[in-house]
């Protein structure tokens, strides 16, 4: 189910280096400090300046001035919502970018002693090095348009955002934090699917995260999912499709089976727009396509209304 490979850099790859500068002054020479994997991923084309001040638009090929792209929340003039990770999500979504990080539980690394030529422990180590994070899920608590909320973010840059034990426990911890704080939970999801290197233990995360959502339901706390590019496999088939409300960023690939698998199965070319956010709205699986810039306000409005209803029922 996990179709996306962690080691295939996305053509519209996020520039994680940009995020690392969040909240602190940009250091000179930061680019040379990141690991070769990421450097390759964001490798400046010959046409780029050495300072990497320009980013090539994956759709039009146009060169975009990096500070402009950052100011546009990594949405290109053509409307492409480039992939971003937890740091930027928190900064863009929480009021004034302020939040309290929620500790992500540590799990057993490599329970199966898995290797597919390259040992899983090495893949983990290199993902940790390039992202600076321990695994694919991060969570924080802050305010969204003044509503206190927990945000969970799945980082596609970390082994394709894949759902393994760490991400599963991270989701469970985020939901628990929401219940403890009596706050709603917002999940920004992005993943190729399950983490195959953890075998059936990763499959079990589909059930474990679903249980965590039940705890939110019992506490009558809203659970809102924001589907981002790409969300497929076991992640879509569990917590990504169990929200009270589903929002999606424009143009995101969202599905159960990946397009390649479907094409191989049915031996047909897929229609244009298939499995994109707009298609899911049309098919009734997503409530609304929401551009990145509007997300804090839209999320705030939804959470405000739901929490007001909840407060009324509790007062009654």
């Amino acid at each position: 189910m996990a179709e996306a490979r962690d080691d295939i850099p996305s053509t519209r790859g996020p520039d994680r280096a940009g995020e690392r500068s969040s909240g602190r002054p940009r250091r000179a020479g930061w680019f040379s400090k990141i690991a070769p994997g990421v450097r390759k991923l964001v490798k400046p084309k010959a046409s780029d300046t050495p300072e990497n001040l320009w980013v090539k638009c994956p759709d039009t090929g146009e060169m975009i001035y990096r500070p402009d792209l950052e100011a546009a929340l990594w949405v290109t003039p053509a409307g492409r919502h480039m992939r971003i990770g937890p740091d930027l999500r928190f900064r863009y979504t929480f009021d004034r970018g302020a939040f309290e990080a929620i500790d992500m539980p540590r799990v057993f690394d490599d329970p199966l002693q898995f290797t597919d030529g390259k040992p899983y422990v090495e893949r983990l180590a290199s993902a940790r090095k390039t992202t600076g994070e321990h695994d694919a899920v991060q969570a924080g608590f802050g305010r969204i348009s003044d509503v206190p909320a927990v945000i969970m973010v799945q980082d596609f840059a970390f082994m394709g955002g894949s759902l393994g034990m760490a991400a599963g426990e991270g989701f469970v911890a985020a939901a628990k934090a929401a219940v403890e704080r009596d706050a709603p939970m917002v999940a920004f999801v992005a993943a190729g699917g399950a983490r195959m290197q953890e075998g059936a233990l990763s499959l079990m995360q589909m059930a474990r995260t679903t249980l965590a959502i039940q705890d939110l339901k019992i506490a009558k706390l809203p659970y809102v999912v924001v589907l981002t590019d790409p969300t497929t496999g076991g992640v879509t088939a569990s917590y990504a499709m169990l929200g009270d409300v589903h929002l999606a960023e424009p143009g995101a690939l969202i599905g159960f089976a990946g397009p390649r698998v479907i094409e191989q199965t049915i031996r047909e070319t897929l229609p244009a727009g298939f499995q994109r956010s707009e298609y899911l709205v049309e098919k009734g699986m997503v409530d609304r396509v929401t551009p990145r810039q509007e997300l804090p306000l839209v999320l705030g409005s939804i959470l405000k209304t739901l929490m007001m209803g909840r407060a009324r029922s509790q007062a009654a």
Binding site: T210, A237, S238, Y239, M241, G255, F256, K283, M285
Partner: peptide
């Protein structure tokens, strides 16, 4: 909605 059906 294969994914939704499985999740539910």
């Amino acid at each position: 909605g294969q994914a939704e059906a499985i999740a539910r």
